[in-house]
Design a protein around this nucleic acid. Structure first.
Length: 916
RNA sequence: GCGGAGGUUGCCGAGCCAGGUUAAAGGCGACAGACUCAAGAUCUGUUUUCGUAGGGAUUCGCCGGUUCGAAUCCGGCCCUCCGCACCA
């Protein structure tokens, strides 16, 4: 459909408020939600898929009698919006270029600069993109209720989050403790992914090293390792020839580490003092003792040692570390690699074999070495065992030994935890990013057993599509431990028990769908009181006990009571639909927080988890430039085409590939549909034949399949049945010489209704053009009564097609070009015999018919007594048969002659007579 | 390694839970024909293989088993993808 037509209907829907439901205790409710979008930029086709699927379901449920609530709000919490805004203030070219490009889809070129200028205030970014998203969603025809819209930055919503956290705290689920974070040295502040240069493309994570202490006579050396289990394989130590080393004092001990490492240590441990610098030659002249093994070690210099990684001191395990092995060879050092780990499943995996396989010639092949290191690391970690050289650790798996050796090192004060970033990183402003340990980080403690138990019970009660995600959810819940739930900065709600902290953006968005049910009332209460007191929140979302309202105005009390009623009516989200990457974070928090805070009747009922969208086989990402924005979709393809594509081109659970070829294929079908329906015509006096009745029965069958599919959320199957298959049938009617206009007109109302959830604009337009009153979107379909199916007509048509196929097969096998086709159908006498034999009443056959029993047995497989009146069926379609084969067709009744071909029910004798 | 999903005819992708009606839906592509001055669109047919009669043979990752009968059930193996965590 034309874009202007789509806009017309979007406008009419909005003006008539048809998607803004009220409570109605007489009707069953259905609440469906999709996680709210983050408002720092435009959404792309990938986001659109989940919202579109949800809208199709919402529309379908609405049209099968439910009171449907499909609300939407916006997420603004966290640092990204702040970070983007700050980058614009700093005139970061990349960011500005990206926004310029985003905006060029929406705005006139002359306005763009002013808008970007306004983005220097973060709230303007959020406000701008919220509006854009509303428009994008509207332009795709979503039947959302926007009247309940709010954002995670709205003060009344933050009062709700405060209530939530106080309740979690009451239940003992909030804790505080030490925790490592990414930290900017210059800014003296924690940083998030969005503050880090290229943080979105190349993610920075925190890695937990084991710092191992090598005792010396005057001071010790500290090397940080990810693989403490290799301690028995240590042959020597490395330092950097170009690094500056310093002596630090920590816990009463003196360590030599790189200057960079001393800064990091100071951020991670209390009471770290730098005593002074120390010359490399001084270190090289000393010997140090390896812990546990007690081995004496020399120190060498190696170029690959980075003073700004770990402690700037590396212990060398040439038997199991590619770097060490390559360096040892290159410097021709007099050390013997020791093999201390065996990989029984793949004994070929050794440092030596990997180095030769990869063709590594020296330490300069750093990429090859990194690759080989990863491979070795993974193999040894998952399948490795410590061999007999490992003292009391011999025989342990690598995973066991790692923990065990680490614990022993810590216990003997020969080691401690050292955090390091997974790569070198700076903030967008250029300040170095390191790991710092926060002393009073707040957590939500998802490990509490009673909580896990409640959550598993909830998972057990919920509906899952696809079902296998139920297990995945249980696993995710088991995996969850303490989660930091607050940050020092970012948009969001202040932690009520320590207002220096801001609640982290996933943690403030777990039970928010509850607010959809009554945001209108909350907003009003907030307006009247300037805040929403705890007692009121507790009444609405918690106890429902009216006595807690007694201190408030009647107006406030009324609002609170309505809010509570609304929650009780709507809540329990029936379906929450999102893509699978959310499972192990948002969705598991969603489930667990509801399990902790709400009674059973207000808990989630079901989850639908969709696959991702890829574009031409590749993952969609902004940096790849293949992120197609949603607005461009409705402009370029039309909303209905996009919706149809999303519904039909992949099952909800599968990955959907967005590519032009497939879209064009769907477009062709869609246009064929439009042409069929718009150009249909038939005379009032037209008398129908069998084929139109056949079509109607087929349609009713497809409609039933459609309802069955939709009810179990197999949207793809349902739409294929009601769209593709019905169109194939229309084509068949045409081919059979039937009157398609008449056939379509018999089913058109119901057809348009069934398609309306998927292509609503098109259907409204057609509905109106048919002279129907009101919106097709608000009509109710009788899903329990799809219409009669005449099996006799269906099997008659099937029989005809079988005969045609047989004739084709014979033509193909014989290469005869027939001038006449004789079809000799089974007579009543033989039919009786077949029925008799079919019931094993052989003895009743008359002597005259007995000779045919052998032939019956031979052809048994192909005999079908379910069709009666074969001759009549064929005669009625004689013209069609003659047209199909371009020759004369004669229908006769077979009189059986022993030794000749015999016609049986469902299997006439076919004879081709060539022309010459 | 653990957990999950999956391997189907040129490609995509159903079927598998409830075994036979399955050479295996549908779409795409390819080929042939109709239409057209032509191309495109549309329609028809073909698209594992053999076959001068509607039939036969072989096929659903591999190997075995259950069964009158298996793409579908059971056991083993191989391979691919996703998750294994605090990140929105």
């Amino acid at each position: 459909m034309d874009q202007s037509v789509e806009e017309k209907w979007q406008k009419r829907w909005a003006e008539s408020h048809v998607f803004e439901p009220d409570m109605d205790s007489a009707r069953k409710k259905f609440m469906i939600t999709v996680p709210w979008p983050y408002t720092n930029g435009p959404l792309h086709v990938g986001h659109g898929r989940t919202y579109t699927l949800a809208d199709i379901i919402a529309r379908y449920k609405r049209m099968t009698g439910y009171n449907v609530l499909f609300p939407m709000a916006f997420h603004q919490s966290g640092t990204p919006i702040l970070a983007f805004s700050e980058r614009i203030r700093l005139n970061d070219e990349k960011t500005i270029r990206q926004y310029r490009e985003n905006l060029s889809e929406y705005e006139e070129p002359e306005n763009i600069d002013a808008i970007i200028e306004s983005f220097k205030k973060p709230e303007n970014i959020a406000a701008y993109f919220s509006e854009r998203i509303v428009k994008d969603f509207t332009s795709l025809g979503y039947s959302m209720d926007w009247t309940r819209r709010f954002t995670s930055a709205d003060p009344f919503y933050q009062d709700f989050v405060v209530w939530q956290f106080n309740r979690l705290h009451d239940k003992g689920l909030i804790k505080s403790g030490r925790y490592p974070v990414l930290y900017s040295i210059d800014d003296q502040n924690a940083v998030g992914e969005d503050d880090i240069s290229d943080g979105d493309i190349d993610k920075v994570t925190i890695e937990e090293y084991t710092a191992v202490i090598f005792k010396g006579t005057e001071y010790s050396l500290v090397a940080a390792s990810l693989r403490p289990e290799t301690i028995f394989g240590i042959t020597n130590l490395w330092i950097s020839p170009s690094g500056d080393y310093v002596l630090v004092e920590m816990d009463g001990e003196k360590f030599a580490v790189s200057r960079e490492a001393s800064e990091k240590l100071a951020l991670q441990h209390d009471d770290v003092t730098v005593i002074g610098s120390i010359r490399n030659s001084q270190i090289l002249s000393q010997e140090f003792t390896a812990p546990i093994s007690g081995r004496k070690l020399k120190v060498y210099q190696a170029e690959f040692v980075d003073p700004d990684n770990g402690t700037g001191v590396v212990y060398s395990v040439p038997g199991h570390a590619v770097w060490d092995f390559v360096a040892m060879k290159e410097y021709s050092l007099d050390v013997d690699p020791v093999t201390i780990i065996d990989v029984p499943s793949d004994p070929g995996i050794t440092v030596q074999s990997l180095v030769s396989q990869a063709g590594i010639s020296g330490v300069s092949d750093s990429d090859l070495i990194k690759e080989a290191t990863q491979k070795l690391y993974k193999e040894e970690f998952y399948s490795g065992k410590l061999n007999g050289y490992n003292g009391k650790y011999s025989g342990m798996t690598v995973q066991q030994a790692r923990d065990s050796i680490r614990d022993d090192l810590f216990a003997q004060k020969l080691g401690f935890i050292f955090y390091e970033t997974s790569r070198h990183a700076t903030t967008r402003a250029g300040s170095k990013v390191v790991v710092s340990v926060m002393k009073d980080q707040w957590f939500i403690d998802y490990s509490v057993p009673w909580w896990k138990k409640l959550s598993h019970e909830l998972v057990g009660r919920m509906f899952y599509y696809p079902e296998f995600y139920r297990n995945a959810m249980n696993d995710a819940i088991d995996w969850l431990r303490e989660r930091p739930c607050a940050r020092r900065r970012g948009i969001g709600t202040r932690l009520p028990f320590n207002r220096e902290w801001v609640i982290e953006s996933l943690s403030d968005s777990t039970i928010y769908p509850a607010v959809y049910t009554n945001s209108t009332q909350l907003r009003e209460i907030f307006r009247l009181l300037g805040r929403i007191p705890e007692e009121i929140m507790d009444f609405i979302y918690g106890s429902g006990d009216r006595s807690s309202l007694s201190g408030f105005d009647v107006a406030v009390q009324d609002l609170a009571r309505e809010a509570r009623r609304s929650l009780e009516y709507w809540y329990g989200v029936d379906i929450r639909l999102t893509a699978h990457p959310h499972l192990s974070n948002h969705l598991s928090f969603y489930v667990m927080n509801h399990a902790a805070l709400f009674p059973e009747n207000l808990q989630p009922r079901g989850l639908i988890i969709s696959g991702l969208v890829i574009s031409n086989g590749a993952k969609i990402s902004k940096s790849k430039g293949n992120a197609i924005s949603l607005l461009r979709i409705s402009h370029r393809y039309s909303a209905d085409l996009y919706r149809l594509f999303v519904a039909v081109n992949a099952d909800i659970a599968s990955t959907l590939d967005w590519n032009e070829d497939e879209i064009q294929a769907v477009r062709k079908k869609y246009e064929t549909f439009l042409a069929l329906v718009s150009n249909r015509q038939h005379d009032a006096g037209f008398i129908s034949t069998q084929i139109e009745s056949w079509f109607e029965s087929r349609f009713n069958q497809h409609l039933e399949e459609y309802f069955q599919g939709m009810e179990k959320f197999d949207l793809r199957g349902a739409i294929i049945s009601i769209f593709y298959e019905v169109m194939n049938d229309i084509r068949y009617v045409e081919q059979r010489g039937g009157n398609t206009g008449y056939a379509i007109s018999r089913i058109l109302d119901r057809w348009i209704q069934a398609l309306a959830p998927v292509i609503p604009h098109t259907c409204e337009e057609l509905w109106e053009s048919m002279g129907r009153e009101g919106f097709v979107s608000t009509t109710i379909m009788e899903k329990d009564n799809p219409g009669p199916v005449d099996q006799e007509i269906l099997s008659a048509e099937k029989y005809l097609q079988k005969v045609i196929q047989d004739i084709r097969d014979i033509i193909k096998a014989t290469s005869i070009d027939p001038a006449t086709i004789e079809i000799s159908v089974c007579g009543s006498e033989m039919r009786k015999l077949a029925l008799m034999l079919g019931e094993n009443r052989v003895s009743e056959a008359t002597p005259r018919l007995k000779p045919f029993i052998g032939d019956y047995m031979k052809n048994k497989r192909n005999i079908d007594t379910s069709v009666s009146g074969e001759a009549a069926i064929l005669r009625e379609s004689l013209t069609y048969l003659e047209k199909t084969f371009q020759c004369q067709v004669n229908i006769t009744e077979n009189s059986p002659v022993p030794g000749k071909k015999i016609a049986w029910p469902g299997r006439p004798v076919i004879t081709l007579k060539p022309s010459s």
